[in-house]
Amino acid sequence: MSHLVADLTDEDCEAINRAVQQAESRTEAEIVPVVAAISGRYDRGEDLFGLLMGLLLMIVAWNLLPQSIPEPGSWEVGPAWWEAFLLSIAVIAGFLFGVHLASRFPVLAQLLSSSKDKTEEVMAAAQMAFVQEEIHHTQRRAGVLLYLSMTERIVAVIADKVAYEALGQAAINELCQSLTARLRSDSLTNALTAAVEELGQQLQQVLPNTAVQADELPNAVRVLRNAV
């Protein structure tokens, strides 16, 4: 699913940007959509994948090594020292190769990461994006972040103080659920555009735009191709 980030065309981004502009024209809040290819590095998953590769390479090396046959009259049947050395090298080489492979293809590390780990990584990345995009610095304290992490397939919605108090946690949870459902059945652009429109309608009811005021944040989707 992360490849969808690269598939976002200029037309897709423009459609999302128009939806943001239209939604913000009806409310004093700021809406900031962020699409991230991946949110975490998953070092533990990389190490576990490396360990599995090391054990696999050790098993392969064990089967390729010639078996030691004791001399007639000798009861020594243990492996020779050089066999143990080669097996140790195989484990280390497999571990390093596995870690490198998992770092290049994060989905491999995610296969060995729990749902809790992935959720925590996404929430931490969303909080960082909330700060980096300066959503918490708006004068009205009414910014809302829509954060989509494509590799993890997890959505996070973070609202600043005024917007959070106006919307309430229940509405935020419902928006997360509806956006997640749309992503399962529709394109990224359509799902995000619909979520922006839905959020705009909710904000219009609780934080209507009662005066002409300049945007404090750009009306543009942010695309993050690497972990924040």
Rank of each mutant, 00 (worst) to 15 (best):
S2M: 00
A6H: 14
L8E: 00
L8P: 03
D10H: 09
D12H: 07
C13I: 03
E14T: 02
E14M: 09
A19Y: 07
Q22V: 01
T27W: 03
I31S: 03
D43S: 09
R44I: 04
R44T: 01
L51G: 04
L51N: 13
L51K: 13
M53V: 08
L55H: 06
L57E: 11
V60T: 02
A61N: 00
L64K: 15
S68H: 15
I69N: 12
E71L: 14
W75S: 15
G78Q: 13
W81A: 02
I89K: 06
I89T: 01
G94C: 01
L96D: 05
H100L: 14
R104D: 09
P106W: 09
V107N: 06
L111K: 10
S113E: 08
S113I: 08
A124R: 15
Q127V: 07
H136A: 11
A142T: 03
L148S: 06
E152P: 01
I154P: 05
V162E: 10
Y164G: 03
A166D: 04
A166T: 06
A171V: 08
I172N: 02
S178R: 15
L183P: 03
R184E: 12
L192Q: 12
A194L: 12
A195T: 00
Q204Y: 03
L207W: 10
P208A: 04
V221Y: 05
R222Q: 13
R225M: 14
